[in-house]
Design a binder for these strands. Structure first.
Lengths: 152, 152
DNA sequence: CTTGTTATTGCCATTATGTGCAGTTACTAT
DNA sequence: ATAGTAACTGCACATAATGGCAATAACAAG
């Protein structure tokens, strides 16, 4: 695939190396095509080559994130999920605190806020990494008040 | 302090109990008056009563968060810091990916975005929990391009 | 004050993720 | 093709945070 070639080239240009592990992680991400945990990714990579360690998967995902190839969102439960960017391109992540689902949203919606924060606070927002907590349509909090605390 | 009394009352109304551990955590948060990690908080609580376990501190902070007494932000390094709300009231958190500092910002700035997301996506943003990654004034990324990946 | 109920705690095991290091291997230049 | 160099990996271990559970203790009612 052309986009992968381009990525591999960019890797090498910056002094990184193209290893089988990195190829496999990328391929698995492609195959999954959706959000996946590091462990799910590792499972699939492990099926291809059983000696690949999960720490390598983590490091690879970090690298891909630096390269804006994948983005990572913290799901409601204490686990992170990784998504291959690419065709969809970068977008906002709406993370539902109720069901843990992650929805993509138009990135430009955050632009005005970014401008405000730059002008008023000198803060340069990294919109790519912005993820927004709240409740999706199905999980709307009961009544108008959010400050209701439930007993476990 | 009046605000603490009010909180304790609210606790009891909802069937929670007022324990010395919870009092101590609250008092320590007050004393610190700034962002602190769970471990920093635990250290200070431990000085007051040496048998208090760190898991209790975590659970207490979670509870306080549910009650909107504290808010928690994920700092750049993989650690979370907790802040006592109260006088400052809720606000946006601007988290610098460079130095890890956390800056407060006017909460209303996020309102227009929240409205968009509600109308276009049926997503109810939890502005209290919104924290925004980027770079503070001191840590502005070099040149205009953010996609530069450095070798470790 | 005594007693009963059950939220809470401390302890310890477990999970998810990150790190240090020595051996391995992708790439570069000969 | 060969050798040199430094990025990368696998392993073992470190760390932050969470969960299970029996013992404890806060609160309500008598």
């Amino acid at each position: 695939m052309a986009c992968e070639e381009a990525f591999f080239k960019k890797l090498r240009e910056r002094g990184f190396r193209l290893t089988p592990q990195r190829e496999m992680v990328l391929s698995v991400l492609h195959q999954i095509g959706d959000f996946a945990t590091a462990e799910q990714i590792h499972d699939k990579v492990h099926a291809l080559s059983s000696s690949v360690d999960i720490s390598t998967v983590y490091r690879t995902l970090d690298l891909f994130e630096d390269f804006r190839m994948v983005s990572c969102v913290e799901r409601g439960d204490g686990q992170r999920v990784y998504e291959l960017l690419g065709m969809h391109g970068p977008h906002l992540h709406l993370v539902c605190s109720g069901c843990g689902s992650v929805m993509g949203a138009e990135l430009d919606l955050a632009r005005p806020l970014a401008v405000c924060l730059r002008e008023d606070y000198g803060f340069e927002v990294d919109v790519n990494r912005l993820h927004i907590p709240g409740f999706c349509h199905e999980c709307q909090p009961v009544s108008g008040e959010a400050a209701t605390v439930e007993k476990r």
